[in-house]
Design a protein around this nucleic acid. Structure first.
Lengths: 250, 250
DNA sequence: ACCTGAACACCGTTCAAGT
DNA sequence: ACCTGAACACCGTTCAAGT
């Protein structure tokens, strides 16, 4: 004689903070960060918007929590890596660090909105700090002084977490799809603009010609933040740091 | 018998796109990016919000324009630098590049909101492209192949424009100041948190202790994106690039 | 205790109307 | 042509009320 909902033992869907955050991550994965509003998240969960405030303090807190979910995912992936043996040579810090960062990157590539949210957090998050802590540990293995570690973190910046700050990445779809068609045909306006101002920015035009020549088909105009470019920048920094660590050893 | 307003020759304040953008930059400088809304900007100019739409297509266009204003300011500052002589040695590219980037940084430090807006632009802007073009020119002087230039731009990322992606920068005031005082005393909660979890993140705690020990008074907990840290990261990358360019020369 | 509906103070933007 | 006021479709959030 219980209601159909409570027929089983579990109340079927006791709303918890964890469930709210999980659902928020899903929503952002599917429809982008712009689609993650208190109202749309509530609709997703089949409840009223105001009910969310029982599990998160406000939207800022929701975003904090959602970053934590991703950070935990990163930490889980990193924990699955083979740990650096205590008797490994000093130089092993470099490959281990490289691997950890690329592991974090792989997770962030599954949640493309996450880096944006990560940037705007102004408070420390335990899962993120633990990620950094393991990075610091690897550098200590590499013989880094704490001072050099500190500089290294600044030098890496967001690269420490697996993403780089790309100006002008070509992504496309962002906001709502409705709206009028007033400014249509602006797609390759950039290309046309570049051509017409060849004499204003000669080096840029030649570089783009040379680069797109070289790697043929897949190359779009503009900056292409693919894996190899990320690794190129990462390796330059790791090499530089390794040299400095070596110098610290006398 | 003209109205008092049109007594002189000039109509006193014909609203133009330039004036709108200028005022938007001022507003963002004074009160932050969050305070830059169509409505507040209109109030600033003493007009109605809807009148703005005669000079900018929409808010996105306003932000595009506001970035252009800053980019032009950067280009002006860069143009005032002593140009690289044609017969300067190959290695001169490095100091010239360094100087240009630090010049751009100085401008961005006067408009701290600008980097955030810059990141979110998805369309090329002529003033920004011209800035990049001059950077490319310097690298070409350094003997870079266009391919290496392309990699270099990726490696520099936002550093090319003078800012670095700092996770967790300590800034403070962001949103509105009113509101209730529910969660007071959360200021140094981060410090307390770090202390209590010393065994969870041992390297982090030790690093912070070592670093704050060293530079005494001015150091706040966390990451301190000051000028020297920026230059540290920049120099590592420039050194790495120079080595690669040297190698390309055989 | 958890959830709700109505309401408030904001957004960006459309539209028909003024001069 | 330029500017306006009212209105629309959204936000995040407060508050008093339901169970």
């Amino acid at each position: 004689m219980t209601s159909p909902r409570t027929a089983g033992t579990a109340p079927r869907s006791a709303l918890t903070r964890a469930r709210v955050l999980e659902s928020a991550v899903d929503l952002a994965d599917r429809e982008g960060l712009g689609a993650l509003t208190m109202r749309s998240l509530a609709r997703e969960l089949g409840i009223e918007a105001m009910s969310l405030y029982h599990h998160v303090a406000n939207k800022e807190d929701l975003l904090d929590g959602v970053v934590d979910v991703v950070a935990v995912e990163i930490q889980d992936a990193v924990a699955r890596l083979e740990p650096l043996a205590d008797d490994a040579p000093r130089s092993a810090w470099r490959t281990a660090t490289r691997r950890q960062i690329l592991t974090a990157r792989a997770v962030l590539l599954r949640h493309r909105w996450a880096s944006t949210v990560l940037e705007t957090r102004k408070t420390f998050s335990l899962p993120v700090i633990r990620y950094y802590d393991s990075l610091i540990g690897l550098m200590r293995h590499g013989g880094f002084s704490y001072d050099l570690v500190h500089h290294a973190m600044h030098a890496l910046g967001s690269r420490a977490l697996g993403f780089s700050q790309e100006l002008f990445e070509p992504d496309g779809a962002t906001a709502g799809s409705a709206g009028g068609g007033a400014t249509e045909g602006a797609d390759d306006a950039a290309t046309a603009m570049l051509m017409q101002m060849a004499e204003q920015v000669p080096h840029m035009v030649e570089m783009l010609a040379a680069v797109s020549h070289e790697d043929g088909a897949g190359s779009t105009l503009g900056w292409c933040d693919d894996q190899s470019e990320f690794e190129f920048g990462l390796d330059i920094i790791l090499d530089g740091l390794d040299r400095l660590a070596e110098r610290e050893q006398h």
